[in-house]
Nucleic acid binder design. Structure first.
Lengths: 349, 349
DNA sequence: CTGAAAGCGCTAACAG
DNA sequence: CTGTTAGCGCTTTCAG
């Protein structure tokens, strides 16, 4: 089988159609200045021969690579994969990103990068040099890493920053955290709850505060107090236990709690059990993720669905458009929605 | 920002080190016939300039593309992603495949292909022409599709067939289904069970019968009967209900059931509940997957862990080695193991 | 509107 | 052991 070469190249098509390479190239890239008849003739040769351009060659001659890189945190991602606890962040990114890439003839490649490493720049730089992607999607915590955004900006590679609205290069995107927290709160309000506790994430994450803002907005609009009803955790189970204990020990106990992660929600449920509070009769809880496992708890959790797939899809579209020179500078918001299940109910009388 | 070009190329390195391009190329590819001193000099230029070869250019000049394609069934994969029921097959493939690729300077790219489509060949052919991968990993049901294996063989692209041991081109690989079924059965045997039912998958899947064989082997070795104790399902929940009802209505009711999928195991548990059988006191069950959700049932399921990550990792290694001309023709077996949780217990007295 | 020439970054083949 | 030469398949100039 020897050295593998392209089975059918642009030359074959050109010969078959009796035109120059250039004309074929123009047809492939859907460029103007080709007479319809000519275009059709070339296209039929392409179809007949089953020609598909080599992206390596396209990239070589200074054109696009048709590759979008989705960068995730190495340690977090591998930990999730190994833990097998059903977190499907990567799958959702693939679902949204890959399918949208495919629609445009692009491919999506996942790349794991270690943020906490001194070599971030080297690692990312190497990936970029090797792959020459046409666009990069950054997820937290990379989205806010100036080493990364700086490198990308410097090399002129369009990129999206999911979960970051800071000014600077790259397309800022959010999954509508403020909005999501608001609708979660409003759902509880509609059920008659008046004391609604909030377990937030750590302040290092911008989205933690965005969510608090959404909760406060809704409470404020309903003229309800929020003071003392917000505790912070670190997204993990133990921090959730502590926060929930504080909230549920308040003299005027909340009748509902919104927690900023599945783990913290599970923790709140455990504290409720310890205190003999039934869910949802005595306490309603809402989780701020919607990973697969929330359906398998007792009761299944009402949860904010983070629109990961939709966001990835949108990011890909924006990145592909970016070659035409237009990047939005206003943050792009893809809103999530509330999935109501059994963990929320009417406020106790 | 203009047309993006490689920041630092082999030319820069060659100039910096004062050698020819070829010598740099030899160093990059770790080829022989370079004096250590020379090699070191070149390497230090590479490090100094932060040079990373462009895989597009490498591929262009007839060398490797450093790309491995993992082909999954489009419909099944998208359905899993959308369902968000925690199936993490793709993640496990990435965990095993991507990390192993990374170790060797390769990347893994997921490609979804529709088996049931007339255009399989066109679809796959296009992906291959565009990407020129150095190797392809096929998963069921593609592994046994002669259109696909034929195309790959014809183009001389090394590939692994996971879940297929048929003769023919490509590296046949299994996840040790026979072995896995045997150890699951033996676990029950050790717990004193003598009537062990088996809910198999459809016969269209080779692995269904491999698993039956493992169960029978263990039963036979223990001189226990299997007649009438095996029912078939289609891996889905409803088929599991039917199979479980038959088994649990037997005059001599089995005290344990092994089912070939999570869904069929859930079905068996539901039938048990309907019949007021406690798990594991009255009935032990073992699932034949180990997807994340099996830990969240009541009780958590004892399950066979399919070594997806390990298999993908092995496949990548074999594929990378394949360029050296050596492909195993004997099926490569990567065995799974049993994860014991709460759904299995001593046989009832 | 179409074609010809030049070159992208790298490696294979062949010389020295 | 090292260097030179010729492309790989495609797109970008720049001429017609």
């Amino acid at each position: 089988m020897g050295r593998r070469r392209q089975a059918v190249t642009i030359k074959h098509v050109a010969a078959d159609a009796g035109v120059s390479l250039q004309t074929v190239s123009r047809v492939i890239n859907n460029e103007p200045n080709v007479r319809p008849a000519m275009k059709e003739r070339v296209q039929s040769s392409i179809d007949k021969l089953g020609y598909v351009p080599s992206i390596a060659a396209q990239r070589m001659s200074g054109s696009r690579s048709y590759l979008i890189l989705a960068i995730n945190d190495r340690d977090l991602t591998i930990a999730d994969w190994r833990a097998r606890e059903g977190r499907d962040w990567v799958d959702q990114m693939l679902l949204g990103g890959m399918l949208t890439c495919a629609e445009h003839g692009y491919r999506m490649l996942i790349e794991l990068v270690d943020t906490h490493n001194d070599h971030v720049e080297r690692e990312l730089g190497a990936a970029i040099a090797a792959l020459q992607p046409d666009g990069v999607i950054l997820t937290p915590p990379h989205s806010g890493n100036p080493l990364i955004t700086g490198l990308l900006a410097e090399r002129g590679i369009p990129f999206a920053r999911i979960g970051s609205t800071d000014p600077g290069p790259g397309i800022p995107m959010t999954m509508g955290d403020t909005h999501n927290a608001r609708i979660a709160t409003e759902h509880l309000l509609d059920l008659g709850h008046e004391r609604i506790g909030f377990i937030a994430g750590p302040s290092e994450f911008s989205l933690s505060d965005w969510r608090i803002a959404g909760w406060k907005e809704a409470m404020f609009a309903a003229k309800l107090p929020t003071k003392g009803l917000c505790e912070r955790g670190d997204f993990g189970f133990d921090s959730g236990l502590e926060a929930a204990r504080k909230l549920l020990s308040l003299p005027e106990r909340p009748t509902a709690i919104i927690a900023s992660s599945d783990q913290m929600t599970f923790a709140a449920m455990q504290v409720a059990r310890e205190m003999d509070l039934r869910i949802p009769e005595d306490l309603s809880v809402i989780s701020f993720d919607n990973s697969p496992i929330v359906r398998f708890t007792q009761p299944p959790l009402t949860a904010v669905d983070q629109p990961i797939a939709a966001t990835a899809s949108r990011a890909v579209e924006l990145l592909i458009d970016a070659k035409k020179g237009q990047l939005p500078t206003e943050p792009v918001r893809v809103k999530g929605e509330l999935v109501v299940r059994g963990s929320t109910g009417p406020a106790p009388a």
